[in-house]
Design a protein around this nucleic acid. Structure first.
Lengths: 265, 265
DNA sequence: CGTGCAATTGATCCATTTCAAGGGCCGTGG
DNA sequence: CCACGGCCCTTGAAATGGATCAATTGCACG
């Protein structure tokens, strides 16, 4: 999966891709690429992006900076991820995107995208689903407000692992994890010190093995349970399983939250 | 603004609407409406929504429930807001939507939306911008992870006030605030007790006046400064002001976060 | 072999949670 | 008309998860 077809792999999670679409995607990402070094900004807040970018390889992240200097990482961009499709509506970025590792990018011009959409309408649908998936991830990150340190970090690791698996970047129960503990801290709203101690706690009970930028999850199911992770929000299943009927107006919401204590034991 | 043109008011924040578009929107929201009582669910997690919904009046909220019963409010839906435009790609809801007050809804069928888009292409753009705005709000909520209680609550109040003002639902520096302190707590990842004490603190220094479900912000600028709120992420300015040029690759990110203490004094 | 960054550790502090209870208000029913 | 229950807001005291401050270690690299 070191090839240029990472975007194909990514979009295949959303729709069935035919030969024609696959080629169209490959061509799209080959036209104009660019390399950015590690720990640099790709786009700053206030910029007006002319392109839609595709991460071909490497890790990046979105972040916002508060006036007093605090920074919050609001999402990670993995190979196969695009940003920002809403750049089609040329507007100022309200956040920045920076790299963690060296990153290879494809720049898709808006005209070429429109053209590809016209020739392959399913591509437009795939892009829309990609956007919807990104939105779902963002919502899930909001839920971190209700989580403690173990849950936040465990949830993040589950999410990253599964997203990497979706583009074939895992090896068994292992994957690269090029982010530092300080990155995790800035993403989860914790201090690096506390992230460190929390990781040690999780290691000590065997939930994770994390060393030299490689993450191993011995028992993904166990980790998911321990931190109440459910992958459904990632919508990586081609979205074909409708369950309940909608429009059941008037049902009452479930009871309020009950007290809780982390279940790492 | 009690009329049916609330969606017109909302979308006018994103694009210039001509006579034709205004009428098209009005018709769209008049075709099929529905009333839902207070504190009820409109859509549950797992449902497959057939419509795009427009809040014509009243307040609703999106929420997710964890397996152990904890609940996190991930966003508020105010008059003029739509949910979920991505329902066009019929998929399971990964979260629920419930009402706070009684809510009047318009249900837009997917065919009618497509039809309206064909007749008025600018409408499609307006909808896309609405989606992009919702996404931006979701990102901003992620930043709450980096904020303390005063900042979270103050930020929320600023956001709600300005969003209401954008659809003419404020009166001077006042607006209705039908949510309870427990709602604020579930939205901001705090306990109701702490929300209570924090509100008292903010009242005591004159940042807000909040009583009987009415919020008054004596000095919006002062509140914004106190909690580091910037409204740019709401993209309510027709997005016409491009500033900097993009593509300045290779610039270094700003320095790491500096220590911080709330500035409510 | 210093220099710098990431991970780690210890000690202390504090913002927020937890637990428990009381007060005000309002609609309803006896 | 008043008692009652329910919801929301409020208050107090004690407990704690995570922050803060300050070093120290380990390691890659020029």
């Amino acid at each position: 999966m070191s090839g240029d077809d990472i975007l194909t792999a990514r979009l295949a999670n959303f729709i069935e891709l035919g030969q024609a679409e696959t080629e169209a995607i490959s061509n799209l990402t080959r036209e104009r690429t660019r390399q950015v070094g590690a720990r640099l900004d790709i786009i700053r807040e206030g910029d007006v992006a002319q392109y839609v970018y595709v991460v071909l390889s490497g890790w990046a992240y979105r972040y916002k900076t508060l006036e007093d200097g605090r920074r919050q990482i609001i999402g990670f961009l993995l190979p196969g991820d695009m940003f920002d499709i809403s750049n089609r509506l040329v507007r100022e970025m309200d956040h920045a995107v920076g790299t963690i590792t060296p990153v290879r990018l494809a720049e898709l011009s808006l005209e070429r995208i429109e053209q590809a959409f016209r020739q392959h309408p399913k591509l437009a649908e795939a892009f829309d689903r990609h956007t919807a998936s990104a939105m779902a991830v963002q919502r899930e990150w909001t839920v971190h407000l209700a989580r403690n340190a173990v849950e936040r970090i465990g949830h993040l690791l589950c999410e990253l692992f599964i997203r990497l698996r979706a583009v074939n970047l895992t090896h068994g129960n292992r994957c690269d994890l090029p982010i530092t503990q300080a990155d995790i801290a800035e993403a989860m709203g914790l201090t690096a010190v506390h992230v460190n101690r929390t990781l040690q706690e999780m290691r000590s009970v065997g939930l994770i093995i994390l060393k030299d930028r490689v993450l191993e999850i011995p028992d993904l199911g166990r980790l998911q349970q321990a931190v109440l992770f459910t992958s459904s929000y990632l919508h990586l299943d081609l979205g074909r399983d409708a369950r309940r009927a909608p429009g059941t107006y008037g049902s009452s919401p479930p009871d309020r939250a009950t007290p809780f204590r982390s279940r790492i034991d």
